Amino acid sequence: MSLITHVSANETLAPGLDSEEGAKSFRRLIWEDNGAAETATKVAVWIAEPGVYPYPPRDLEETFVVLEGEALCSLGGSEPEKIGPGSIVRVPKGVAPWLKVLTPFRKLATVVPKP
Rank of each mutant, 00 (worst) to 15 (best):
D59N: 13
V101W: 04
P57N: 01
Y55I: 04
P97K: 00
R90Y: 11
K100R: 15
S78L: 06
K100N: 13
Y53P: 05
G51F: 04
E70S: 14
G76F: 12
E61D: 09
V91F: 08
G94P: 05
P57C: 02
P92Y: 00
S74W: 12
E81L: 04
K100E: 15
S74L: 05
P50E: 03
V95I: 14
T110D: 01
S87D: 03
L102D: 02
V95D: 02
V52S: 11
V91P: 03
R58F: 14
T110P: 00
V65W: 05
A96Y: 02
P104S: 13
G86A: 08
S78E: 15
T63R: 06
V101G: 00
G76R: 14
E61Q: 10
S87H: 07
E81T: 10
A109F: 10
S78D: 15
K107N: 02
P92R: 06
C73T: 02
L60R: 10
L108Y: 08
A96E: 08
L75E: 07
G84D: 04
L99K: 09
L60V: 14
P56I: 00
C73Y: 03
K107Y: 06
V111H: 00
L99H: 06
V65L: 11
T110N: 01
P50G: 03
G84R: 03
L99P: 04
A96S: 09
K100H: 14
P54Y: 03
